[in-house]
């Protein structure tokens, strides 16, 4: 299997209105690893992903994937926004949402192919939501909604997967499904980036961490990033999770 290229973030600075949101971030994201993006509220975690994908303007810096800017290769990206960003009363069924993952690959003016429908069906099966395919999305629990979004991302057949706070308000079963599939994706050589803020037990699921607080505090293997000094710099003095810290 040919290995995917890596993402290189080079001197990235981002402003949100007139306030600096991220300052001079340099990092490399490699395929095959589960990468967790951590930091306190307002640390710029979502901003980092959005800026990397070119969804918001950057002040300086460049983000490349292989030979080209990542923002030029968005058809290789599956992005799952925070659940709170979505209007769940929208008139759509589970099936409608998963098929959205096939829109770009299907192309303008074309109808969905049989293979697209197979991919969507397989994706729903994988997240355990196939029996709900005709349900309106508003009739699902938070965890089920998140699994539908994961199925949409799987149906996109992307190389780069970005999840923004996928564990907020989900049940234990969904959390297990999400981590299992993230792991499978990473093992299949994909790039998997997950924004999270829960510093509990689940942090051990990640191979690599990116620790942010308006600038890059540290990035690299989990045990290497999780030092007392790094955590204090990211979260300030009041942190109660030193059980995991090297």
């Amino acid at each position: 299997m040919a290995t995917s290229p890596k993402i290189i973030v080079d001197h990235l600075s981002v402003n949100y209105r007139d306030v600096q949101a991220l300052r001079n971030v340099n990092l490399t994201v490699r395929p095959g690893k589960m990468v967790g993006i951590f930091g306190p509220n307002g640390a710029g975690k979502s901003t980092l992903i959005k800026a990397m994908l070119g969804l918001m303007p950057v002040v300086t810096g460049r983000v490349t994937y292989g030979d080209d800017t990542l923002a030029h290769q968005l058809d290789r990206v599956a992005y799952v926004p925070q659940r709170s960003q979505i209007d769940w009363t929208f008139p759509a069924t589970v099936w409608d949402v998963v098929m959205m993952g096939r829109v770009k690959k299907t192309g303008w003016f074309n109808r969905f192919s049989a293979s697209s429908r197979q991919l969507a069906t397989a994706a729903l099966e994988r997240v355990g939501m196939l029996e709900f395919r005709d349900r309106p999305i508003g009739a699902l629990s938070g965890g089920q909604q998140q699994r539908v979004f994961l199925a949409r991302a799987l149906a996109q057949e992307a190389e780069i997967f970005c999840f923004d706070e996928p564990f907020v308000g989900v049940d234990q079963k969904t959390e297990t499904v999400l981590f299992n599939i993230f792991r499978e994706l990473a093992q299949a050589g994909k790039i998997v980036m997950v924004i999270n803020h829960d510093l509990g037990e689940s942090i051990t699921n990640f191979d690599q961490l990116i620790l942010l607080n308006k600038e890059l505090i540290a990035a690299g293997p989990r045990d290497w990033v999780l030092t007392r000094d790094n955590m204090t710099r990211a979260y300030g003095g009041h942190v109660g999770f030193f059980g995991h810290v090297a």
Binding site: L74, Y79, P81, Q85, V103, Q156
Partner: peptide, 17 residues
């Protein structure tokens, strides 16, 4: 199909190209 994706999840649609 494009307008459905866009009107439901503009950020996801943009991020998907």
């Amino acid at each position: 199909k494009e307008l459905l994706f866009y009107s439901f999840d503009p950020l996801g649609a943009q991020a998907g190209g």
